[in-house]
Write a protein that binds this DNA or RNA. Structure first.
Lengths: 138, 138
DNA sequence: GTAATTATTTGTAATGATTACACATTTGTA
DNA sequence: TACAAATGTGTAATCATTACAAATAATTAC
């Protein structure tokens, strides 16, 4: 997905393109900040003054169904969206609120005795604490 | 914490005991079902007809501050509470909704290059999918 | 190319778990 | 027993998300 043809990219993924969808995809792709639906709205409604919050919610739902996005539930009352759908961990800094990705050695399902016979569909790993910048400020 | 003296147990943990607090602790201790605040309320308001939802919310907050409970954020719109505050994983079955504990080999903070200099305060691991019972029903 | 059909977007209203708050009740203490 | 502090209660507010119906845009059939 290089360049700026997010329209094309949507088509390729079997999604009917629209300006709203392309802009939302572009934002997610370029700024990899695990935004909430509201973050997306706040950022784009200058560019698309008619944009509706509902459209953002509809779109992230659509993208999630097409596996373009992975919803992150770390805090109650905010769903964040990660355009990297691969398995990795997330660290949320309790001070600055930023989210950092980290490689999670996926021990996988194998070896977990309690989950024998279970079908695992999603794996989530998240840590909380202070990022290094915020640690140093203390 | 054996027997039924949850009053005593609260005192030992530096919490002023009350009937409400003792009953909530008892419920959490005996039924290890990772309930929501509402689950706790639903179960106890027969026994304590005057029980208020707010009391349940206040109490789980208090218990959390005293490290008696660990809040689990797995789905948006529901905070569940686990009386086992040790590090372990949670599996939520998407069919029956039950939550299962599993041992999570804590690779710990060590070895995660991206988190060097970070202060990790909480680790959460949760999976979703179908438990073995629900898998077999298909 | 135009009309008809379908998909997408929009704005407002509803939802529902959690929190705020003010008042009532209970408990501990002098 | 009386007073002060802590705890519990019920109602109202909050706020992210969802439901829904009307408006707009895009696609298809002719």
């Amino acid at each position: 997905m290089l360049g700026t043809d997010f329209f094309m990219e949507l088509s390729n993924r079997g999604i009917q393109p629209s300006i709203q969808r392309a802009k939302i995809l572009e934002f997610l792709w370029k700024e990899r900040i695990h935004p909430t639906a509201d973050d997306i709205f706040d950022h784009l409604h200058h560019e698309i003054p008619t944009l509706s919050r509902t459209t953002v919610y509809n779109t992230v739902k659509l993208f999630t169904e097409h596996n373009i996005l992975q919803p992150l539930v770390i805090e109650d009352k905010e769903i964040r969206y990660d355009i990297d759908t691969s398995l990795h961990g997330h660290f949320k800094c309790e001070s600055c609120g930023n989210i950092f990705d980290f490689k999670a050695d996926n021990e996988g399902s194998a070896g977990i005795r309690e989950l024998e016979g279970f079908q695992i569909r999603e794996r989530h790993i998240y840590f909380k604490g202070l990022c290094s910048s915020c640690s140093n400020l203390k």
